[in-house]
């Protein structure tokens, strides 16, 4: 009796979670433009999607910013984490508290604050400002995923390398970095997903010059539902699910594969 009730409850929750996604996917193949009416199967929205120059451009900006901001924030974040780990307790507390601000602050506040800064500095909003903004909110996550690995590290590990004849820079490259690599990789993955996923901060910092996918979807959606967005959503959703499954599969087999 309880078991059946539990199953029904979970079933209803899953229905709630998946109904919108399924409807979205189904209607991306709908011949009719109307949202409630099924007019037969078609792939024309997908075809239209690939012809759309605006969407191609937005995809380009999204990927460009994601890749660049991931590379920059991973490098800067890892180096900063190494520095912070070796700071005095007081300095570390101060730096980490400031570092946490973009994580704790609502995105909209981070977005308008950065926009205010860029405009006050006389910078033209566009690709560069969006990229800077993405780096700003990604670094804290990289630091937060690298620091625990540094803390887990036996405090004598670096000394052990020196003891065996390694110079400090050799010890850093061949021992410390490989030991904290899982943290660096998960920080990079986090930075990449956050950048791909971000709308709010991009919206305030990209201006009208560099429209990425999420900004484009927002402006299209505000004007009303369009079947091309259904097609785009379906493709993005499937890409993400496949990517995440691959990542999870790999990390299941052990962290070494992630390297």
């Amino acid at each position: 009796m309880m078991k059946v009730a539990k199953k029904i409850y979970m079933g209803l929750l899953y229905l709630f979670l998946y109904a919108p996604i399924i409807v979205l996917i189904v209607f991306s193949f709908n011949e009719s433009k109307s949202r409630g009416h099924w007019g037969g199967f078609t792939l024309k929205w997908y075809a239209e999607l690939f012809r759309d120059r605006q969407i191609r451009e937005a995809l380009y900006y999204t990927l460009l910013v994601a890749v660049l901001s991931t590379v920059i924030s991973t490098i800067v974040g890892t180096l900063a984490a190494l520095g912070i780990h070796n700071m005095s307790k007081l300095g570390r507390t101060v730096v980490l508290n400031i570092n946490n601000l973009p994580v704790l602050n609502p995105d909209i506040v981070t977005g308008v604050a950065l926009m205010t800064l860029f405009i006050s500095m006389g910078l033209e909003l566009g690709l560069v400002t969006m990229l800077i903004a993405h780096v700003v909110f990604s670094i804290p996550y990289v630091i937060l995923s690298v620091l625990p690995k540094l803390r887990q590290l036996n405090k004598h590990t670096a000394e052990a390398a020196l003891d065996l004849g390694a110079t400090p820079s050799y010890a850093l490259r061949k021992v410390i970095l490989p030991e904290i690599m899982p943290g660096i990789v998960s920080g990079a993955l986090m930075a990449f997903t956050l950048s791909i996923d971000d709308f709010v901060i991009s919206f305030f910092t990209a201006g009208t010059e560099a429209t990425n996918l999420s900004i484009l979807i927002y402006s299209m959606a505000k004007r009303g539902v369009k079947p091309t967005i259904n097609a785009l959503s379906t493709l993005m959703f499937i890409t993400i699910v496949v990517l995440m499954l691959i990542i999870n599969k790999k990390s299941d087999k052990g962290e070494n594969l992630l390297l």
Partner: peptide, 15 residues
């Protein structure tokens, strides 16, 4: 479902 873009999840409810 969280892996889907936030905007798209909201957009799905629009339809």
């Amino acid at each position: 479902p969280i892996w889907m873009n936030f905007l798209l999840r909201t957009y799905a409810w629009m339809s």
